[in-house]
Write a protein that binds this DNA or RNA. Sequence first.
DNA 1: GGTATGATTGACT
DNA 2: GTCAATCATACCA
Length: 187
Amino acid sequence: MVDDYFGRDAVTVARAMIGATLLVDGTGGVIVETEAYSRDDPASHSYSGESRRNRSMFGPAGRAYIYRSYGIHWCLNVVCGAPPGGHAVLIRAIEPIAGIDLMRRRRGCEAIDRLCSGPGRLGQALGIGPLHDGLELAEAPFSFRPPVAAAPIIAGPRIGITRGADRPWRFGLAASPFLSRPFPAEV
DNA sequence: GGTATGATTGACT
DNA sequence: GTCAATCATACCA
């Protein structure tokens, strides 16, 4: 089940995760924005091979890869693809559904459309930290449920990268108010 | 050994 | 629009 879903290539998994439900210790909601990163992708942390930081990316699919962004934020990825690995999907935005009050306190923010809209904000709202690195999404404290029905998906270039910027590997739930930023097509 | 860069965000002009 | 916060990693000497 886990391999059938997360064992596919990063782009396929990134699209398939739009509309899925993700909870961490009972906080979270519906995934509305993702980005794909692959082993031979200049923008990927795995591009230069395995290191201390990215070792989770080279482990089994279906586990979390957590990294520190700009020395400040914790960002959540899901490892995917087949061995030897190096592929992952960055979760960039979630529509808050569960544990909203707790997420507001963690974020120090009232606006619901800024609670989990952005990889750093999402990590803070869900209480993500280095202890989650390498954990299975199918087991506590995580809870992952694939989409019930097919979601209308929009694609565009990934955000905040310089190399590999031409790959349209950012995916979102069309017209969602909870995207971290609008897609070029809907500006 | 030193230094520049980044899958970001929030505050400020 | 600009810029600081803050640190692991990459790259160069």
